[in-house]
């Protein structure tokens, strides 16, 4: 009788392994999101900091016009982006680049399409002061917030003794942004062993993603990004030039290179690419299948893929399986 039990146990183990299947089970952990985004020692998140940061994030008084908030462009109802090819800022100015989603931005080791911002604390002040975005000078903002009853109290609770300053504004917003995390997706449930969480197309698509499509060379790990910069040959509209990362570090490989975006919740954040060149994931897959359009300075990891029609739609199905449960956002009451 004993051998039977062992066999049954073995069978169960085999089933468990098969459930994780498609790829090898030993790499299962690499796709699990860490519980928390890393934080700098001088800005460990706590409820008071997150609450203040959220209030600032949704407060249009952070702009010169008192009309544009961070959430105007990074709208939680649209995957923390704006659904536009490129952002629209102060006085309806159309920006050069697309508004990235903020989901999991706390894990990015550099920020912006060209990596010019080193951390969330510093990044937060950029769009406030930028004339084309929120057009609000920072000293003016400190006076403005100090005069709004209710803000001093919030700042004091979050950063006792530090006062209202550019620094504490940046810190609070960053603390809030670190809570904007991706939720569990069908893909994650599949990786955890629920074989029925995704359909066969998504499973085949994941194989294309890791294999023939070579997508993992750049979109790797739980956040599907290598935190790196690549020129994937995206065309600019009517002859415009965007040198991308090259403006930050003038090295040949950086010419026209942009930060690899995360693919978590990517189905929610069309249009795609730094300039919003593609309206759908299908168009993105066609781009990769062609091996990119602009061959000058093209990443050597790019080449025509020769995907079949089935493989292309499987890839799209896989990317759609990365849409997770969305964070429930309750809007803050802004102090008066």
């Amino acid at each position: 009788m004993k051998p039977m039990v062992t066999l049954a146990a073995l069978g169960a183990a085999a089933i468990a392994l098969a459930a994780v299947s498609g790829a090898d089970a030993s790499r299962y952990d690499q796709y699990l999101r860490p519980a928390k985004a890393p934080e700098p020692a001088d800005n460990i998140g706590n409820p008071a900091r997150v609450e203040l940061g959220k209030t600032l994030f949704f407060d249009p008084r952070l702009s010169g016009s008192n009309w544009i908030s961070c959430a105007t462009c990074h709208n939680p109802s649209r995957g923390w982006s704006d659904g536009l090819p490129t952002g629209v800022g102060h006085g309806m100015q159309v920006l050069k680049r697309a508004t990235p989603s903020l989901i999991n931005c706390g894990f990015n080791t550099t920020l912006m399409w060209d990596g010019r911002a080193p951390n969330l604390e510093e990044q937060a002040l950029g769009p406030i002061a930028a004339a084309a975005e929120m057009n609000q000078d920072l000293p003016g903002l400190v006076s403005k917030l100090s005069a709004i009853q209710g803000y001093p109290k919030l700042f004091n609770a979050a950063y006792p003794g530090e006062g209202i300053s550019e620094k504490t504004i940046g810190k609070a917003i960053a603390a809030y942004e670190r809570t904007i995390l991706s939720g569990e997706s069908p893909f994650d449930r599949w990786r955890k062993g629920d074989a029925r969480a995704v359909d066969a197309a998504a499973k085949r698509g994941f194989e294309v993603f890791e294999g023939k499509g070579k997508c993992v060379k750049c979109h790797e790990g739980f956040n599907f990004t290598d935190n790196g910069f690549h020129n994937i040959g995206v065309k600019e509209p009517n002859g415009e030039v965007d040198v991308g990362r090259f403006a930050q570090r003038a090295l040949r490989v950086n010419y026209g290179a942009f930060r690899t975006p995360s693919l978590r919740d990517v189905a929610l954040t069309a249009p795609y690419m730094h300039n919003g060149a593609y309206a759908t994931l299908e168009e993105v897959v066609e781009h990769y299948d062609r091996g990119g359009d602009v061959t000058e300075h093209l990443s050597p990891n790019m080449s025509p893929l020769g995907l079949t029609a089935g493989e292309k739609s499987d890839l799209v199905a896989f990317m759609k399986s990365l849409t997770g449960k969305q964070l429930v956002v309750t809007l803050p009451h802004l102090p008066n």
Binding site: G115, V253, A257
Partner: peptide
Amino acid sequence: LEIECAIHPD
């Protein structure tokens, strides 16, 4: 000397 990879700044 600080040596880096331009593709992967980390």
